[in-house]
Computed example of a mutant assay.
Amino acid sequence: MLVGDPYDGAENLNYVGQYILYKAQTTKTQTYFTLEHVVSGTDESGNFGTKIVTHDLNNDGYPDIIVSSPMSDNQKGKVHIIDNNTQEERMVLKGLNSFDHFGSSLAVWDNYLAVGSPYSDDTCLNEGQSCGSVNIYRLNGFENVTLITTLSSPSSDSNFNAFGSSLMFATLPLDGVDTNLLIVGEHWADGEYPSVDKRAGIVNIFDMENVITADDGTNVMPSILTLGKGFGSAFGTSFALTASGNLAISAPLEGSGLAATGHVYIKSSDNIKYIDDLYPMEDNTQFGASLAGIETGLHHGLVIGAERSCQGARMGGAIYFA
């Protein structure tokens, strides 16, 4: 088990960050974890360990570690590729400009790595808009990680959309055909309020076949665009697949007035239509701040974080199972 700790160093106000690798051991009655490695970042205020994914780059049968430090190098951001056998860094991918926050989100599928830079303005219509972008890399060993294209926000004429703030690969049936998709959150975009600064949020769903064959990724349009409905709801903050294969999308700031109660929408796997929604029984919880699908011997479903829930302690947070 890998655990990111991006705020390690807070006692010295340097926030270098680290990740911790635990080894699982199972008996007839329980599973327990023992500490195996602790790997620290090297950049002050880099928040190393913010996002972590794994992929076997050297084909030795063991997943290697890809970890981000989006605040490194004056917030340009970095993504570190680490050999799982030695815990040594083998390659570093870097953001281009200050405040890009390159590595704020990561996703891996097959031999492709997606890296979000939600405040990049490289693909915006005007300099300084910080509309966001997503780089797509082909993974072929530690020494051969190649940038193949960069995706941009379909609403690249707007400011601070945060395109690429969340990412997920999924295979879902579109029009009855299983399709490899890249799902990109843009939680500060205008959603159902075009040309009005409402920040409802947008989720962009790209067909990966179109992405990897494009000459210019900035011209690739989403196959499906799903729009947030609530004023300032941050729709698209997090995604997960449910046990039945449907897509869950969170809007943790949705609520009336200043009550950021939060909402999780469930969309059907075929053609991404609304079929259900989930919400908590208390206000101001930011229900849906994080999502994860879970499949264990005891539970098959959805785990929902509500980071400001007061059920246990004031703003102590809560975890819901659905």
Rank of each mutant, 00 (worst) to 15 (best):
T86F: 09
A240P: 12
A234L: 10
L247A: 07
L96W: 13
V92A: 06
H299P: 00
V303L: 08
K78E: 05
S40C: 12
N47R: 15
A189R: 06
D207A: 11
G317Y: 13
G245P: 01
Y193T: 11
I266R: 02
G77C: 11
G191K: 06
F99Q: 04
Q286V: 15
A243P: 04
S98M: 11
G230L: 09
G262K: 10
D83K: 06
D190A: 13
I82E: 00
G95I: 10
S223R: 15
A259P: 00
D190F: 14
G95A: 07
A322L: 06
N47W: 13
Q87L: 04
S156T: 10
D73V: 13
Y7I: 00
N180E: 14
G305D: 12
T296W: 09
D270L: 02
T218A: 13
V39Y: 00
A306N: 03
I66F: 03
E11L: 05
A248V: 12
A200G: 10
S153P: 05
G176H: 07
A114E: 11
S98A: 14
F33Y: 01
A24C: 00
I266Y: 08
D56T: 09
D8W: 03
K94T: 15
S133P: 01
Y320V: 08
L147W: 09
I249Q: 05
V38D: 00
S195P: 00
L278D: 06
Y32S: 04
F33E: 01
L174I: 15
G176P: 04
A24V: 00
P6R: 03
T86N: 07
V264K: 01
L21R: 05
H187V: 02
Y15L: 06
Y19G: 00
A322E: 13
G236L: 03
L2P: 01
V134C: 01
L182S: 03
G236A: 06
D110A: 14
G230N: 15
N180C: 02
F206P: 00
C310V: 07
Y119G: 01
S152I: 07
A234T: 11
V92R: 08
T42G: 11
Q18Y: 02
A200S: 15
F163I: 06
